[in-house]
Design a protein around this nucleic acid. Structure first.
Lengths: 254, 254
DNA sequence: ACTTTTTCTTACCCACGGGTAACATATCGG
DNA sequence: CCGATATGTTACCCGTGGGTAAGAAAAAGT
């Protein structure tokens, strides 16, 4: 019988009785080994997709970079566009956890907005983060595209919510939250298009500057205390492996 | 003998002796008819490319929308990616003429920057304008890609120059022109990704708001006179014909 | 050691779409 | 009205690359 394609996210408890000690660990370690390979595929894929663009990357290339062959990929993914989606999802999860963390903390609307700007900037400098804005959702299967659209909408809503909260609590000048959010998110998203690892600007430099630059016009007092806690992207090991990475020329506004 | 593919931009003076009155006019009118068809192809193409994405659009579709067949397109263009490039160039020309006009006029660095923001916003709401930021330059032949990169660089340099000029003449606070330009251009470029004709926001609304929003943080006085001359995109007939235009859902930050 | 399951390879299929060849038909100058 | 030149059509080629079938090789289980 041909490969039986594991569904992703089988997070349910293992159906094995927890009394037996031996079969559980191997099972888990096996599953983990599998997940690690899966993630390795995603890391290779996202890098190539960003480097060359989704349509110019062949599955043969992805496989080659992992020292396997194309059909082997189909043990982990059902199709090329599913790989794209999973890369995208990795980025979305990062944003979601950032938002969750900010929501958990307190502070004014402005302070939350600044935290978001800061963390989001850092995200845009990672592969999975950049994939959020550089991948074309129309390449996804409709089902996945719908999921992605929903996630984007949540993120957008968060920006607007923070801004609206800021105008409500007085930390942000009255303004149209929709357009203000578009402006800020636009500037941030665009980072994913021009940032290059080997460029002059470090992610923290960009983050610090943008945090000021994008909110100074909104703040009620000309220079409020900017709480900078340098929030690292939480609970993810080494989300972007230091690999070769081609030139990525450019460095312009577009 | 098979089709002899006219080179674009044969702007050199007609080799016909200017004494003869009759052969010159027909020649001109013929050339113009040809150019009009060429441009019609570009309008159809840019629309489809934006709608569905370059790689999902086939030349058959482009041709079909013009009531011709695919090989007919090759009378006007050498390849699909050349069509893409020409679409992109149309946008670039629009920006260039905007910049030329602003450069011709006077005003402080801040005032020039605001003019640029205003005009650029309006451009992003047009098909050819959006193509500037939504097309992937890696789809172009290397020669054309180089041209496009150069054009982008010029645009970016203009943003920075206006900002630098502003800090020099005192109309703009001291800041890093590079990062400030990135922030502003990012917010503007992103418009090309979320703007939709049938949305709530009109181009002028967006332009007016962004002109304020993106520069208020930079201005030295909290509220300078904002010269709003509503500069129309110059000397181009009806750059975007009111055509069908599919849904374009979304409306989020990404 | 033998079976079973998972993982991976070799070899292939085939739809799609850019591009071309050869031929038909307007269009135009004269 | 006629040859020449554009302009367009029908029919085809073929490289590319996603995806699959069948079976080898490696682990795991017993």
């Amino acid at each position: 019988m041909p490969a039986r394609v594991n569904r992703p996210n089988m997070d349910s408890a293992p159906p094995v009785p927890p009394s037996s000690p031996s079969p559980w660990l191997p099972f888990e370690s096996r599953r983990r080994a599998r997940d690690e390979k899966r993630e390795a595929v995603l890391r290779a894929a996202v890098q190539l997709f960003l480097e060359q663009g989704y349509h110019r990357v062949t599955l043969n290339e992805v496989a080659e970079r992992l020292n396997i062959t194309k059909p082997a990929l189909y043990n982990y993914f059902r199709s090329k566009d599913e790989i794209l989606f999973e890369c995208w999802s990795m980025g979305a999860e990062l944003v979601d956890s950032v938002i969750t963390e900010i929501n958990a903390g307190g502070g004014s609307g402005l302070s939350k907005l600044r935290k978001l700007v800061h963390a989001y900037t850092a995200l845009m400098a990672t592969d999975f983060g950049a994939s959020l804005v550089r991948f074309d959702l129309r390449d996804l299967a409709e089902r996945n595209a719908a999921v992605a659209r929903a996630a984007k909408k949540r993120i957008d809503a968060t920006f607007r919510r923070y801004i609206a909260a800021g105008t409500a609590d007085g930390s942000i000048k009255p303004c149209d939250p929709k357009l203000a959010a578009f402006a800020i998110a636009g500037a941030l998203n665009w980072i994913g298009h021009w940032y290059q690892r080997d460029g002059e600007l470090s992610p923290t430099e960009i983050a610090d500057e943008f945090t000021v630059r994008l909110t100074e016009g909104l703040a009620t007092e000309s220079r409020q205390q900017i709480t900078k806690k340098t929030p690292r992207a939480p609970q993810r090991r080494n989300s972007t492996r230091g690999t070769i990475g081609k030139k990525r020329t450019g460095g312009g506004t577009g």
